[in-house]
């Protein structure tokens, strides 16, 4: 078990009292697993990921990474942001090198160690470009390479393809699966696209509306690449969509 989330609860202070964003969240993630977290808007998906990343602290509960309780952010968890969050003044290479630079790795070695990740995400030839010169899909490739270059134990992705157009999005999903199969990283991937979750995940965690908890977990055992047009894909998509819709009604 690489990641254990036990009894997680998170509330935010409000003018009067508090708002419980996450009521109860328990999840164990296996090494090398691809887990998608799916849920209605505002149910606390980002909050969960930020707590795992150490960017936010939980109100209650424990999170263990490789058996050790996490406190605060660290380079053992790589994060990929929907907004890319690249450093605009750094070139592609210098963005990817950022983490190693922080660790004081000498320039030569830095370059060597990052080059393979730049190639892995298919950005060779673009090393000296600035982010503004790249398309959205390419920016997120940089985001992925930057997160991987730190060689984290786990990759946290918060709707990483949410800002991309449909075509680029499909391409990036395929690319991510290729990268994942080459690195065997553990991935926690947040999305609110059922389609995306079905295409990518080993396991889909469907959350309820606020105060959120785990509604249902689906194990997806289909081989990859998956066919979005297959009848079982369509059937499960329909089932999960209906489940999500029923929750939105309850919320209203």
């Amino acid at each position: 078990m690489i990641l254990e989330i036990k009894d997680l609860m998170k509330s935010f202070p409000k003018k009067k009292g508090e708002m419980v964003a996450i009521a109860d969240f328990d999840l164990d993630v296996e090494e090398g697993e691809f887990v998608c977290i799916l849920g209605p808007s505002g149910c606390g998906k980002t909050t969960i990921l930020r707590i795992i990343a150490g960017l936010e602290s939980q109100t209650r509960g424990r999170i263990l990474l490789n058996g050790k309780e996490i406190s605060g952010p660290g380079s053992d968890r790589g994060m990929v942001f929907q907004e890319f969050a690249l450093f605009p003044w750094r070139t592609v290479r210098r963005n990817v090198e950022f983490g190693l630079e922080l660790k004081g790795v000498p320039p030569e070695e830095r370059r060597e160690r990052t080059q393979k990740f730049i190639e892995l995400v298919g950005l060779n030839g673009f090393e000296d470009y600035h982010p503004y010169q790249l398309s959205g899909g390419m920016k997120q490739r940089v985001g992925i390479a930057r997160a991987l270059a730190n060689e984290p134990a786990i990759l946290l992705m918060d709707e990483p393809f949410g800002a991309l157009d449909a075509q680029t999005r499909n391409l990036m999903q395929k690319e991510l699966l290729r990268i994942w199969s080459e690195t065997r990283k553990t991935v926690i991937f947040i999305t609110h696209s059922v389609d995306e979750a079905l295409f990518l995940a080993d396991r889909i965690v469907v959350m309820t509306a606020r105060p959120s908890e785990i509604g249902q977990i689906y194990e997806i055992k289909w081989p990859r690449p998956r066919d979005r047009a297959s009848p079982e894909f369509a059937a499960l998509r329909k089932q999960i969509l209906e489940q999500l819709e029923s929750m939105v009604k309850i919320e209203e």
Partner: peptide, 27 residues
């Protein structure tokens, strides 16, 4: 300075001092 850039730096393992020299100052 965009908060998300600070978040990105923190998840990359930046200390408070490094966030200052490598993100806030260049920004």
């Amino acid at each position: 300075v965009e908060p998300i850039l600070l978040d990105a730096a923190r998840t990359q393992g930046a200390s408070r001092f490094q966030i200052f020299t490598k993100v806030v100052f260049p920004y």
